[in-house]
Design a protein around this nucleic acid. Structure first.
Lengths: 187, 187
DNA sequence: GTCTATAGATCGATAGAC
DNA sequence: GTCTATCGATCTATAGAC
């Protein structure tokens, strides 16, 4: 059997899945070991800080992914509407059209908010800022852009909650569609 | 010291607070014992099914509260707009203007969705149905009412996520305000 | 009914062989 | 680097005194 995990970063996707499915407290080292194929010794070699360091690494990778695929796109798009459309595409893909939860949102609601407050707040505030700037470049006033950015983020996060609660990914898909239509980002 | 908990129902508010603050896994029997003032013996006397029965009882009480103060109001209001306004008042109060999370939403996002799938789905689907019916009585078509009900619920749930994530209850207050204004429910 | 004591399992984390 | 063995702490749940 080939070695799948050769360095710390290789373990992050499996690690993220465990945290997403079981939450921070529910993600036991046994589950993590099974998901990554690593024994506890290896895990503590890669993450001397234990479970907290594992979760921080996962949050950091999620942040980096959104920074690259979402926030940067929003900031760099020549036409702001293109940035918004690209954001919705990326978000729809990332959340598997509603079949995957937002780990950062789940951590925010759950027992883990205080422990990772900095990371959680950074993720959402930079997302809101990038979206707000794009909306402002699209011609909206500063206050209106900020309010709208907040509303769009709430819609996305709330749709993830509903999709999970109703066991209906369509609830998320419909949210993405209405956001696309509303800002004339349909393709 | 007077006995505070004389019957099962007396323990539910404290129980709910513990689950809300620490999540299902994080709510240990020690925490629960401290919050309710009951020893493990008493807790297992009231809830023979253990922690799972405690959580189900809490979800049931939340459901009953919303049934009485939100769903029924939506269904019974003579003018639908009054029902919507009353719903937003009740919701704003219940979630302490954004300082309190929605336990059902948190359970839906977290590790506990499967265990309480029936309760979680029932809460949100009945909320959506009552809201949808009120919107339809207000003159909207069936499809439009259903879509709008889903959007309003997503906005509320997402605003709770944002308020917690940004540590800014204002994110929730602003959501309530924009919902009030948008559907001309301002007072 | 409520308590203390504790069983039995599992937790996160560490040590040491290889 | 990766493993196994194991630690002490903590968990849920039970038993039995009162």
């Amino acid at each position: 059997m080939p070695r799948i995990v050769a360095e710390r970063a290789d373990a992050l996707p499996a690690l993220a899945e465990v945290f997403r499915e079981h939450g921070y407290e529910g993600a036991s080292l046994s589950l993590i070991g099974a998901a990554t194929g690593l024994g506890k010794g290896s895990l503590y070699h890669f993450f001397p800080g234990g479970k907290e360091e594992m979760a921080k690494a996962v949050l950091g990778e999620i942040d980096a992914w959104f920074e690259q695929h979402v926030f940067a796109t929003l900031r760099e798009a020549t036409r702001p509407e293109e940035g918004l459309a690209a954001m919705l595409d990326a978000v729809d893909g990332y959340f598997r059209s509603g079949r995957r939860v937002c780990l950062v949102g789940a951590f925010a609601l759950g027992d883990t908010r205080d422990r990772f407050a900095r990371e959680i707040r950074g993720y959402f505030s930079r997302w809101a800022a990038a979206l707000c700037a794009a909306l402002a470049r699209g011609g909206r006033g500063a206050a209106a852009a900020a309010a709208l950015a907040e509303e769009i983020l709430a819609d996305i996060q709330g749709a993830i909650v509903l999709a999970r609660a109703l066991d209906d990914p369509g609830a998320f898909a419909r949210a993405v569609t209405r956001l696309r239509r509303r800002y004339e980002m349909g393709r």
